[in-house]
Nucleic acid binder design. Structure first.
Lengths: 216, 216
DNA sequence: TATGATTCGGAGGGTCGGCTCCGTTTCATC
DNA sequence: GATGAAACGGAGCCGACCCTCCGAATCATA
């Protein structure tokens, strides 16, 4: 039901403006910040906000889709690296960088999962990540006992630093270095502990490539 | 200014009950959950909540103080380990474990920092942590280019997994293993990148042992 | 520029949560 | 048990926020 005709120019301008201001507002005050303030910041009336986004969830969903689109743009550069290990490095760095710059993203992902509990954020890229992990492990550069899920969790961990406000942001590159050294295949690595039933389920889920569950 | 006389028995009982219910409520719904619901869960009227805690921030502050007290209890067991490295292991494990069990804690710490911007949560233990780091680095077991601040940041990262809901909780031990391997001193470790001026300031601050800033 | 359609702005209705106030109840003491 | 003090409960006020509605303004087209 996307409108067939192109929207009026002022409408398009306001839409962009609202999305941009939403990003900074959500970064500063969290994704529950008053939408009336969003209107003020964007220089429009409250009514205009709700003309463009039915409610807060619709706005969040649009931010999420834009984020997924960002990531699709990042993917080729990451996956085409010369070595599997380099891909892993790029993956963690680019994703953590992106998350650090957009601290509202983790909250958005959580909200998305709340809206549709059958959907696990990040699933879109599970296949690509699994391939990357397999390549690096075949090379013998990535420790063999980590999985694609572990990498996703690490990315979320790195990205979560943004939530602590600006103070932690200068640090994530340091933590990234430490994590990467921990991910390197080494004869004397401590074995990564298993996690039981739940891990297997989660793991299978993330590798599944079935159709994305539909909404309502 | 704590009241000189001991409080009535029902008052004490309600106070405990409210704190306990606040922990579960905040775990389930975040630290902005309605306090009227806290009243309902604790089986008291809304008025009683505000008799015990002037407002939400006072409640949060009390939870924070209880948390700091918890940590003081943990400290001896961590610091008295046979080796410096074992202390580091215990520190990361115990703290991450504690944070994973109390997902509301990071939000509480952030709120505390908001209430008093001159106060950095965790500062109370900076000295002990710095000592632990020094010991492990003298042993040659902890990589020499990490600092006490890095460790604190890593703890927060590990603990942040709790915020993503139960799904991630089974994983933190795996990430901990990876991080610990990354922290180990090795001849071929990638140097941890510096962070410039801001790092130095933050670093100095965390090592400072001046008086804790007073409130209002 | 005239015209109709689209979008905008912002006042305001409805809801929800924070917090207060005071009549009622419970507790400690005699 | 009687009595004063302390604590309780919950109705209700207030402010904040979500979202709607419609007259005014803006845009696209002729």
């Amino acid at each position: 039901m996307t409108s067939s005709a192109s929207p009026r120019r002022d409408a398009r301008r306001n839409h962009e403006r609202l999305l941009a201001e939403a990003r900074t507002l959500f970064t500063e005050r969290g994704i529950d910040a008053p939408l009336d303030e969003l209107a003020t910041r964007a220089g429009v009336g409250p009514g205009t906000v709700y003309r463009h986004f039915a409610n807060r969830d619709a706005l969040i969903r649009e931010l999420y889709d834009a984020g997924v689109s960002d990531l699709h743009g990042l993917a080729p550069g990451i996956l085409s690296a010369e070595t599997g290990w380099r891909s892993i490095e790029l993956y963690l760095e680019r994703l953590a960088e992106w998350l650090a710059a957009s601290p509202y993203v983790p909250a958005v992902m959580r909200r998305m999962a709340d809206l549709d509990p059958t959907y696990k954020p990040g699933t879109e890229f599970a296949e690509a990540i699994a391939g990357m992990v397999a390549r690096a492990q075949e090379e013998g550069t990535l420790r063999p006992d980590v999985t694609a899920v572990d990498l996703s969790v690490l990315v979320d961990m790195l990205g979560s630093l943004g939530q602590y406000g600006g103070a932690y942001l200068p640090f994530w590159r340091r933590q990234l270095t430490i994590v990467l050294d921990g991910l390197r295949a080494r004869p004397d690595n401590t074995p990564v502990p298993g996690v039981g039933q739940e891990f297997d389920e989660f793991h299978d889920m993330s590798h599944a490539k079935g159709p994305k569950p539909s909404h309502d």
